[in-house]
């Protein structure tokens, strides 16, 4: 088996600018999505994900231009998430140069949207983002539920059942974020990642909690993830993507390595 596991840096974009402080000393404008994307490409990123956190729907059009500009220069797969609610939203992102769109809240409120979108543009373009939180008490069998609104609102939906349902509805990939771990830097929720990965037939991207390179590796070796997504460890230049890939390869994980990457 020679398919490489993927490393996907994730950029939060607000009104066309990268936020949450990307800190590369040697790039001119760390707020410019094109420059940051180009840098990650040079470091050997396998894909790039943009999360549009623009609050006002009036300003949503800016992410379309961001995707266009990045896609003109960076020739690796691009995923866009945030505010995708209609098939028109999906098409607009794909036409701008995105390869995949991530659907999150809209899937929870209207699962048929996932079916409709994947029918129209193909499952390979549809990522369903799942935000899950552990709800089982100590000593109980592990159970996770889907939460919306940044982990604040429970939905009562069981995460594993939900993931299976989304695949049945046409999700080509699952982006799984542990809301318990997001921002903690203590590592992925590995039992959650493993449970979802074993339950579905499509690739799973692990997200939420990465603080060091071992965490990335464990997402694959213990969480059985097909790809790992991280933001801050790359943004703050704690590690380059190339270093992360080398570390994972040293732990026996198949990675896309090249001496071309910086």
């Amino acid at each position: 088996m020679s398919l490489a596991k993927r490393i996907i840096p994730c950029l939060d974009v607000d009104n066309g600018r990268v936020v949450k402080g990307v800190q590369f000393v040697d790039i001119r404008d760390a707020g410019n999505p094109v420059e940051v994307a180009r840098r990650y490409d040079e470091e050997g990123a396998d894909e790039i994900t943009f999360l549009d956190i623009t609050a006002s729907s009036d300003d949503r059009e800016t992410i379309v231009h961001v995707v266009e500009e990045v896609a003109n220069e960076v020739f690796i797969p691009l995923t866009v998430g945030g505010g995708i609610r209609t098939v028109d939203d999906v098409r607009r992102m794909l036409n701008a140069g995105a390869d995949k769109v991530a659907i999150n809240t809209a899937a929870v409120f209207n699962p048929e949207f996932v079916r409709e979108a994947s029918d129209k543009v193909g499952s390979q373009c549809i990522v369903v983002a799942i935000d899950a939180k552990k709800v089982s008490a100590e000593g109980e069998p592990l159970r996770w539920e889907i939460f919306t609104h940044g982990g604040r609102k429970p939905t009562g939906l069981d995460a594993i059942e939900w993931a299976k349902k989304m695949v049945e509805y046409g999700a080509g990939e699952i982006l799984l974020t542990s809301m318990d771990r997001d921002g903690t830097k203590i590592g992925f929720d590995l039992p959650l990642t493993r449970a979802i990965s074993e339950a579905v037939t499509v690739p799973v991207i692990a997200s939420g909690g990465v603080g060091n390179l071992d965490h990335l590796a464990e997402g694959v070796t213990e969480g059985l993830a097909d790809a790992v997504l991280a933001a801050s460890i790359f943004h703050f230049a704690e590690y380059t993507i190339q270093e992360a890939k080398q570390h994972m390869a040293d732990r026996g994980i198949e990675m896309r390595l090249s001496d071309r990457y910086v």
Binding site: S2, L3, G172, T201, P203, D226
Partner: peptide, 22 residues
């Protein structure tokens, strides 16, 4: 890839085949 005849060999491999391969 998901053909029944293949499934035994494919085991836990995910479909679509997505990512960087040799």
């Amino acid at each position: 890839f998901s053909d029944s005849a293949l499934k035994a060999q494919m085991q836990s491999l995910k479909v679509p085949h997505m990512g960087w391969n040799k």
